[in-house]
Design a protein around this nucleic acid. Structure first.
Length: 214
DNA sequence: ACTACGATTAAA
DNA sequence: TTAATCGTAGTC
């Protein structure tokens, strides 16, 4: 019932991709993807919140004004690859590269609703089994860009990972097609971005309880 | 080489 | 409201 998104799906501007990714499923296989027992290592979360970073004219984007460095190189590459960077010296953020090559757009994955592997996520986040977590900790498993990377054990050594391959990828549910109501809001944490800080380029599923800050 | 700071989080 | 924590990017 889950079907992996194709390269073509990602080849659109970051705003459209950010909206289209809502309600899709982020899947990560820990360990060796080729092993037959890999179902035990599967982490799945529904994407409930995203932000679009639109490249050249977007003062909030790492690629603003054509800025091109070793770090941002992946953003200028082909769509459907993971751009992962370290923020505030201690948290990783996962992005999906959008649009055509050389455009420099990406979508930040801001929050997930845990679907499968919550026990593993709990260990990664709190170094404690799920049964030992309090209500707040359960709510906070994956409701932020740094939190979901911690829960999935996603770090920068997965930077540049091809999301059409078998380790980290995104699926749609073809058995159960869900209509998502999308709320548009200002992006978070880019107060320095002048006029761009007010653009409504943050998107989340209406009424979903796993969205990050309101 | 030196420095300022960030697409965040958790705790006070 | 604030500290934590270090790679990145810009400057010298």
């Amino acid at each position: 019932m889950y079907e992996k998104l194709s390269r073509k799906f990602y080849k659109k501007n970051a705003i459209d991709l950010a909206k289209d990714l809502l309600g899709k499923y982020l899947v990560f296989r820990e360990g060796n993807p080729d092993k037959s027992n890999c179902k035990n290592n599967l982490l799945i979360g529904k994407i409930v919140e995203t932000e679009a970073y639109m490249g050249f004219y977007d003062k909030g984007a790492h690629t603003y004004n054509g800025r091109r460095t070793e770090r941002t190189e992946v953003m200028y590459g082909e769509a459907g690859y993971a751009y992962i960077y370290l923020i505030y010296g201690m948290y990783n953020c996962l992005n999906v590269v959008a649009a055509e090559k050389e455009v420099g757009q990406a979508v930040l994955i801001r929050a997930l609703e845990p679907i499968k592997g919550q026990d593993k996520m709990s260990i990664s986040r709190y170094n404690k089994p799920l049964s030992d977590l309090n209500k707040k900790q359960i709510k906070n498993l994956t409701n932020g860009p740094g939190k979901l990377c911690k829960a999935y054990n996603i770090t920068r050594d997965l930077n540049g990972e091809d999301l059409t391959k078998n380790r980290l990828y995104i699926c749609k549910n073809i058995a159960h097609k869900e209509k998502v109501s999308i709320i548009e809001a200002k992006r978070i944490g880019i107060d320095y971005a002048e006029e761009a800080k007010d653009f409504l380029w943050r998107f989340y599923i209406k009424d979903n309880k796993h969205v990050s800050v309101y």
